[in-house]
């Protein structure tokens, strides 16, 4: 794939991740830390189409630009959500690298969501000095499975559409 082609694809994925991130941040939520994690679909697509490094780059760009545009850069919520997002992309990248045939995009997405949720809870507990937060772990795990399934399916269908447009990542 030509370098410029790859660059524009990654820029598009970053833009998609950023838009999803910002739109989601403005939606009403039952609890402040509950999000669908839709922007993870773009990160996962970057991982599958371009590899681990680009996926981490998209995630980092999404976080820094999202923090800048949405406000709250360097606040506690940013640190908690940011470390959770990084744990998520690193987990997905490791699973994809080490066990390439074991998980479909849906499985990778669920694994990423679970890593996101447990990291979020751990960092929040460290932040607040409140170990009792771990009582919430079951809720976080179940919501992680559900949102991971959703974003995994979105990624799956999005990649299929991409094929119809121009063939696989061409």
């Amino acid at each position: 794939m030509r370098y410029s082609h790859r660059l524009t694809r990654l820029a598009l994925l970053t833009a998609i991740a950023l838009v999803l991130f910002l739109v989601e941040a403005s939606l009403p939520r039952p609890l402040p830390w509950m999000r669908l994690g839709l922007s993870n679909a773009a990160v996962l697509a970057a991982l599958l189409l371009f590899g681990a490094g680009p996926a981490v780059a998209v995630s980092l760009a999404k976080l820094s630009l999202g923090g800048l545009l949405g406000g709250g850069l360097a606040g506690p919520a940013f640190v908690i959500g940011g470390s959770a997002s990084l744990a998520s992309v690193v987990t997905m990248a490791l699973l994809h690298r080490l066990l390439p045939r074991a998980f479909s995009p849906v499985g990778l997405s669920v694994a990423g969501a679970l890593a996101h949720q447990s990291t979020q809870l751990t960092v929040a507990a460290i932040y607040l000095g409140h170990i009792a937060l771990f009582a919430l772990l079951p809720v976080f795990l179940i919501s992680g499975v559900l949102t991971g399934l959703l974003t995994g399916l979105i990624t799956y269908f999005a990649l299929q559409r991409l094929d119809k447009i121009d063939g696989h990542g061409a």
């Binding site: 599958l48 994809h96 066990l99 390439p100 045939r101 074991a102 998980f103 479909s104 995009p105 849906v106 499985g107 990778l108 669920v110 799956y156 696989h168």
Partner: peptide, 11 residues
């Protein structure tokens, strides 16, 4: 594709 399309046992 270099990854499984259908849901796997791992999933």
């Amino acid at each position: 594709r270099p990854w499984p399309e259908a849901p796997t046992i791992g999933d």
